[in-house]
């Protein structure tokens, strides 16, 4: 998804709309991804207005095909799939964004300290290697089944396997920057640690971290769906896309709409985040862009 940059010089006299258009032409992926994502966010925020109670069961109207009044059909308990899917976007986005933020913040903290403190580094990186050796899904299911099914626990369980990746990224940036002459100079003249961190290190980690965070967000949403599908995710009473699909899979021949709509929403959202990530990577982080 590499945009082919057409060299349009950015003049200062251009109107805002013209500039937006130029940006779109230069980075269509960022705009498309962001646009789709914003659409999802709007739908999510409007859920109470456009959707009915996603939990309300009406067994008389069970397994109805999409039709007027129930545009996505109903499930085996007569619940409205449209309402459930719309409310489901709340959970998926919450999980995706929370995991991205949580793993980035924790990973950033650990990575910064590890990059700066040798003895701590040795221990922490061994633990990180250990966590990375355990397949993420396995680790997450085990953690959820231990801690009990709740949204918080799912977020934590998905974040933990993502943290080592962030730590490694941050640590490698810190190690590279530490060796830059200007940083070495700053250290030698006794500049305060926090100042170095704030001036030199953090700015350099922002771009790769944002790119990394979008991928974490996308993979977290898929992982959440997989956990629910396997029966080890968010409590089934909560309509998440994964839960709706998991409950509907028995009916995938008789009532394919139960899994089709949440599946479609999930795929579009993850696609949007991935496209956005690709675009940002090309845009923000040319170093990484060259590699991928």
């Amino acid at each position: 998804m590499v945009a082919t940059p057409t060299e349009v010089p950015l003049g200062h006299d251009k109107t805002v709309s013209r500039r937006a258009w130029d940006y779109t032409r230069r980075h269509p992926t960022v705009v498309i991804g962001l646009g789709l994502l914003l659409l999802m966010v709007v739908i999510t925020l409007l859920a109470p207005v456009i959707a009915a109670d996603p939990l309300f069961m009406n067994p008389i109207d069970r397994l109805r095909a999409p039709q007027e009044g129930m545009i996505f059909g109903t499930d085996m308990y007569g619940r409205d799939i449209f309402s459930r899917t719309i409310y489901g976007s709340r959970i998926s986005l919450t999980v995706g964004i929370s995991v991205a933020v949580l793993s980035t913040v924790v990973g950033l903290a650990i990575g910064l300290i590890a990059g700066y403190n040798r003895p701590f580094d040795a221990i922490v990186m061994r633990i990180m290697d250990g966590i990375m050796a355990i397949p993420a899904i396995l680790l997450a299911i085990a953690l959820v089944s231990l801690a009990g099914a709740s949204i918080q626990n799912v977020i934590i369980a998905i974040s933990i396997p993502e943290i080592p990746r962030v730590v490694r990224l941050v640590r490698s940036v810190v190690l590279t920057i530490r060796e830059q002459p200007y940083v070495e100079a700053a250290i030698s003249v006794g500049t305060n640690f926090w100042k170095i961190l704030w001036r030199h290190i953090l700015p350099n980690t922002v771009a790769p971290l944002i790119v990394q965070a979008t991928y974490v967000c996308a993979s977290a949403m898929i992982l959440e769906a997989i956990l629910s599908f396997l029966g080890a995710g968010t409590p089934p009473e909560i309509p998440t896309w994964g839960n709706i699909i998991a409950e509907g899979r028995t009916y995938f021949q008789r009532a394919p709409w139960i899994i089709f709509f949440p599946g479609l929403f999930l795929a579009i959202t993850v696609l949007a985040v991935n496209i956005l990530g690709d675009g940002l990577r090309d845009n923000l982080d040319p170093r990484v862009a060259r590699r991928m």
Binding site: M1, V2, I226, F229, R249, I259, G263, N274, I275
Partner: peptide
Amino acid sequence: VMVFAVLGFSVPIFVVAYAMIW
């Protein structure tokens, strides 16, 4: 190819699996 690659990341494996069985 790249669109296909992003799709490969984005569509959950069980959705692909059920579609193929069907």
